[in-house]
Design a protein around this nucleic acid. Structure first.
Length: 481
DNA sequence: TACATACAC
DNA sequence: CATGGTGTATGTA
């Protein structure tokens, strides 16, 4: 996706928030995670409605660059706010935001006191840790990240020409998974409810998901990937990492030309476009693949100076693993770019866990993994469905039955078994509660899942979840292995 | 182990 | 007439 506020390198600073396509990932999820998860932040001022619009998921939906042929950003925000403000969903977002603000405020208290201290004794220790990270830098591989452009939407347009050049999205009235570029001009984005999108763009055409088709196309592009790296890592149906180092040894071509060729083959064989990033590791390749979207590629040379010049002005939000919340925390400390992470490394060190510190520092140095493998061991299997409020426990058990049957069937396909069953209740107010139970022996049958799940539900209906709220709307079973 | 949060897609 | 589903990592108790 094209950026609007560019610095000398063409990188986006500050603004951003285009958020990529949002895809259901039904298979081959290789989420190699990364970032700091729950950060022990405490703190902030009870921010109000306006802040919520700015900070929450709802605000995030509005903050992209709408406004070419459609409406401007303020208008988009306003429409989303009007459509959301009285909903249970919005209320829950507001609550979550308040909690976050309190934590942020406490964090800031700590930060302010740190700023008054003399931290010079810690300096050398921190610099040492930076040196340790620097020694991990490996510039010997050429890693490619390939990302299909508006994947689901492009497939639907390809197969139905009447959809072309019109604002269109894939999904349904309650949730969109992808929108095409015309729709994005109206502020219509993935992860936006269809009914809100329609308010932003009344002409919007919403096409239902067709996963079988997307999977088939995914298989096609993966076959192409395997020609260049048999050990490529698929991250989702439309995205993958390749290590083309070995391939380059067999041929007298530049990395850029090879990637052009991959993208050309994708286009010839699927009539779809892809974008790509080429760099020394997965972190950098991923960031690069976003820079010349759609239908473009970006090469970052395997050279420390180039990498540092590239990463220094980059908004922290561009780092995979730094999301809305972490960005907010960093911004609160006046850290907006990767360069600022390095400049404030001592504060980062004192404010965060060591694993978070290590993550931030490596990201800011442009250091990341360059291991690209196909094999992957799954750690959990889950199934979840949202349904309208239920009033009787028996209704809940019935849902449990259905989901347990499905889950067991899926487990059988992969010959999986596990020892932990977790159930997530989504209450009518959108609050999520999870309760789990581990057992001694491995289980995999629908009956076992059902029976354990039923106990978990039974206990919590009577004790933790008040009868009223157990008009919950969702159940998830998670099986850990 | 149990639960919550953050993140990606 | 209304805001999804699957998976991973991490912090805290």
């Amino acid at each position: 996706m094209e950026s609007d506020i560019l610095d000398s390198h063409g990188f986006l600073i500050g603004e951003e928030l285009e958020g990529d396509d949002f895809h259901y990932v039904e298979e081959d999820q290789k989420n190699e995670n990364i970032g700091p998860s729950s950060i022990p932040y405490p703190s902030s001022t009870g921010s109000k409605n306006n802040d919520l619009i700015r900070n929450s998921r709802i605000g995030e939906l509005a903050s992209n660059k709408a406004g070419l042929q459609g409406i401007d950003k303020e208008k988009v925000k306003q429409i989303i706010y009007e459509a959301s403000k009285n909903s249970a969903f919005y209320l829950n977002e507001e609550k979550k935001d308040e909690a976050l603000s309190i934590k942020l405020k406490q964090m800031m208290k700590k930060y302010e006191s740190l700023k008054k201290q003399n931290l010079s004794t810690i300096n050398s220790k921190v610099d040492n840790l930076v040196q340790v990270a620097e020694r991990e830098r490996d510039l010997s591989h050429i890693i490619v990240h390939i990302d299909m452009d508006a994947f689901y939407a492009s497939i639907e347009e390809r197969d139905n020409p009447s959809l072309r050049n019109k604002p269109m999205a894939v999904g349904d009235n309650s949730m969109l998974t992808t929108s095409n570029y015309e729709a994005r001009n109206y502020g219509v984005r993935s992860a936006m409810p269809g009914f809100i999108a329609k308010k932003l763009c009344p002409e919007l055409i919403i096409v239902p998901c067709n996963f079988d088709k997307y999977r088939a196309v995914s298989k096609q592009i993966r076959e192409i990937f395997s020609r260049y790296d048999p050990d490529y890592t698929p991250m989702s149906l439309d995205e993958a990492y390749l290590d083309i180092t070995k391939y380059l040894d067999t041929i007298d071509e530049s990395p850029d030309n090879v990637v052009e060729q991959i993208r050309r083959e994708i286009h010839e064989e699927t009539k779809l476009t892809a974008s790509a990033g080429i760099a020394a590791n997965k972190l950098l390749a991923k960031i690069c693949s976003d820079l010349n979207k759609p239908n473009g590629q970006y090469r970052l040379q395997n050279n420390v100076d180039d990498i540092m010049n590239f990463i220094r002005p980059l908004s922290v939000r561009k780092i995979p693993g730094i999301g809305r919340v972490t960005e907010r925390i960093l911004n609160e400390m006046d850290i907006k770019t990767c360069g600022a992470i390095l400049d404030n490394r001592v504060y980062i060190h004192q404010m965060f866990s060591s694993s978070s510190f290590n993550f931030f520092i490596r990201a800011a140095l442009g250091i990341g993994s360059n291991i690209v493998k196909t094999d992957h061991k799954r750690k959990s299997k889950s199934i979840s469905r949202t349904f309208s409020s239920l009033s009787k426990p028996d209704d809940l058990y019935e849902k449990l039955r259905e989901l347990a049957d499905h889950l067991a069937a899926d487990l059988l396909k992969e010959r999986l078994q596990g020892k932990t069953i977790a159930i997530t209740f989504k209450l009518v107010n959108f609050k999520m509660i999870t309760r789990e139970r581990s057992v001694k022996k491995y289980i995999h049958t629908a009956d076992d899942i059902y029976n354990i799940g039923k106990q978990v539900i039974f206990i919590n209906i009577n004790r933790i979840i008040p009868l009223q709220t157990f008009e919950s709307t969702l159940i998830t079973f998670i099986n850990r292995f």
